[in-house]
C-alpha cells in the first residue's frame, strides 16, 4: 500500500497538473455545451417540427466514437492534432447532444397552466423564458448536466491516445511500463473528479430550487 502513496508523493506535481488539465477539459465543454443547448433546446420546443430532427441529429452525434472525432477534428476545423481545442470541441458536441433533448424536455415539463398564466400576466417571450420557464426546468436540466459531466470526465481520458495531457496519461504510461500504480491512481482520481462535479451541480441545482423541497416540508 505504501508503494501507492510513495508514488503519489513523488509525482504530486505532475498528477496535480494532470488533474487540473482533466478538470478544465471536462468542465469547459460542459459550460459551452449548456450555453449552446439552451437556445437549441428552446427552439426545438417552440417549433414542434424541429424537435424530432433536432433530437435525432444530436443523438446521432453522440454515437460517433470519441477517438474518431478527436482524430478527425483537426482535418475539419484546421487545428493541430495535439491541440487540446480538439478535445474541447469534441466534448462540447457530446454535451450539446445530451443536453438539447434535456432542455427541450425540461421546458416542455413546465405545466401548461403556468405557461398560460405567464402569458396572461403580460410576460414577453424572452423574459418568460428566463424568469419562469428556465427556473422551473432547472431540476430536469441539472439531471441532464450531471450525466453529461460524468460522461465528459470519462471521455476526456480517451484523449490520452492522441497525446493531450490529462489523467488518461496515467493509464497509457502505466500500460507502457506494465506498472499498475499510476493506472489505479488515474481511475481513483477520475472517479473523484466525476464525484466532485456531480456534487457541485447537485448543490447549485439545490440552491436554485428551494421550492422543490418546500412541498415536502
Amino acid at each position: 500500500m505504501s508503494e501507492y502513496f510513495t508514488w503519489l508523493l513523488d509525482n504530486a506535481g505532475q498528477v496535480t497538473a494532470l488533474f487540473w488539465a482533466h478538470t478544465k477539459l471536462a468542465v469547459i465543454p460542459l459550460l459551452i455545451g449548456l450555453v449552446l443547448a439552451l437556445p437549441l433546446g428552446w427552439a426545438s420546443r417552440r417549433i414542434p417540427r424541429l424537435y424530432t430532427p433536432m433530437v435525432g441529429l444530436t443523438g446521432l452525434l453522440y454515437t460517433i466514437p470519441s477517438l474518431a472525432l478527436f482524430v478527425a477534428l483537426p482535418g475539419i476545423i484546421g487545428t493541430k492534432i495535439l491541440d487540446p481545442v480538439n478535445v474541447v470541441v469534441a466534448l462540447t458536441l457530446y454535451t450539446v447532444a445530451l443536453l438539447v433533448r434535456t432542455v427541450a424536455d425540461g421546458l416542455a415539463a413546465v405545466p401548461e397552466d403556468v405557461q398560460a398564466a405567464a402569458t396572461a400576466m403580460g410576460y414577453r417571450r424572452f423574459r418568460r423564458l428566463v424568469a419562469v420557464e428556465l427556473p422551473i426546468a432547472v431540476p430536469v436540466i441539472a439531471a441532464g448536466l450531471r450525466v453529461a459531466a460524468v460522461s465528459n470526465v470519462s471521455l476526456v481520458s480517451v484523449a490520452a491516445l492522441i497525446g493531450v495531457p490529462q489523467l488518461g496519461q496515467l493509464f497509457t504510461s502505466g500500460f507502457q511500463l506494465f506498472y499498475f500504480v499510476p493506472i489505479v491512481w488515474g481511475v481513483v482520481l477520475c472517479l473523484l473528479l466525476a464525484f466532485l462535479l456531480d456534487a457541485v451541480i447537485l448543490l447549485v441545482a439545490r440552491w436554485l430550487t428551494p421550492w422543490t423541497r418546500a412541498a415536502q416540508a
Binding site: D113, V114, A117, A120, G122, I136
Partner: peptide, 21 residues
C-alpha cells in the same frame, strides 16, 4: 399584446401559480 394583458387581471384554472416563487 403584452401591455394589454398587464392591464387585465387573469385568474386561471388550477390557479397556475409559479411554483418557483
Amino acid at each position: 399584446a403584452a401591455t394589454l394583458r398587464r392591464g387585465i387581471g387573469y385568474v386561471i384554472q388550477h390557479a397556475g401559480l409559479f411554483p418557483h416563487r
